[in-house]
Computed example of a mutant assay.
Amino acid sequence: MSIVNIRNIELVNNPAKYTDPYVLRIQFECIAPLKEDLEWKLIYVGSGESEKFDQELDSCMVGPIPVGLNSFEFSASPPTLSLLPSPSTPADLIGVTVIILSASYNDAEFVRVGYYVATNWDSEEYALDVEEGRKDGEMEHLVRNVKVDTPRVTRFSNKWDAPEPTTSSFPSGSTLPTSPSSTLLSAPLPNPTTSTSTPTNASAPRDPTQSALPAPITALPAPAPAPSPVLTTETETETEAEDAHPLASQVEDEDKMGKEVANDEGRGEEGGEGLSNAGGAALGEM
């Protein structure tokens, strides 16, 4: 970003005679304080083929520069004919060339504004007389016209008052400061066999009998064996069996009762046979 920006350029005497000085009124804006002055130059381009014919018509230093809008008037002499590319007559100056307004700070150009300049005779009648050879052409009849409506502006970067960048802010051979995180990472880890509350002597020789491993883990006592189940024998009492199996004892009682009924029925059949035999004998006797 440029600290100085041109707002307006006015050519006070335009058009003017070729031999008249250039008078410019320049307005610019400064957006920050400047320690040095500004240098302004007006350059006349004598030939489009080589820069060696360029003429610095004048230059001036402007300053100190306050912040805000500023304006000044700049006057420069006309070009020197002897420095132009061998004009034999004033008629050789007829044509178009360029003037350049350049601004610099600390010997560094930051802007240039170029204008086309048309040079011709002051009247058409005089131009016709010169063309037909009735007149030789004189310098006092030459006029210039700066085309202020078509400027060409070129801007350049400038350091202004910025400090020079330094490669390092630390003197040679000094060590860079370390951050707390890097200090923490570079710190040695504590010995797992020593307590943090007991200070250790780093210079004391290490005892090879002391192990660097943690203390061994003490084995826990084995759990007591579970009591083995008690097996019952076949010689258990009937009361215990009935208490343990009431349904089985009920079935056994019913089985005994069935056997007794069967025996009684058998005896009944035998008694019937006797009655039958006895009755038969009695009937026979009757």
Rank of each mutant, 00 (worst) to 15 (best):
R7A: 02
V12N: 00
K17S: 08
T19S: 11
D20K: 06
F28P: 05
E29M: 09
P33L: 03
D37I: 10
L38Y: 07
E39I: 09
W40E: 03
K41P: 11
E49Q: 11
S50F: 04
F53C: 01
Q55D: 11
C60E: 13
C60M: 10
V67Q: 08
V67H: 12
L69D: 06
P78L: 09
P78Y: 06
P78W: 03
P79A: 08
P79D: 01
L83V: 01
D92H: 13
G95E: 01
V96M: 07
T97C: 07
T97K: 12
V98P: 10
S104A: 15
V113D: 13
V113F: 09
Y116E: 13
E125Y: 08
E125V: 12
E131T: 07
K135S: 14
L142T: 04
R144F: 01
R144W: 02
R144H: 06
R144T: 12
N145I: 07
D149T: 05
R152N: 14
F156W: 00
N158S: 11
K159P: 15
K159G: 04
W160Q: 05
D161E: 12
S168Q: 10
S172R: 15
G173A: 01
L176Q: 13
P177Q: 10
T178W: 15
S182P: 13
L189E: 11
S195W: 07
P199A: 02
A204P: 00
R206S: 07
P208A: 02
T209M: 00
S211F: 03
A212D: 08
T218I: 11
A219G: 15
P221R: 10
P221E: 12
A222L: 07
P223D: 14
A224Y: 04
A226C: 09
V230I: 15
T232N: 07
E234R: 06
E238P: 09
E238W: 12
E242V: 15
A244W: 04
H245I: 01
H245Q: 06
V261A: 11
V261L: 11
A262S: 10
N263S: 11
G266V: 02
E269T: 01
E273F: 01
L275P: 03
G280K: 13
A282L: 11
L283P: 06
L283E: 02
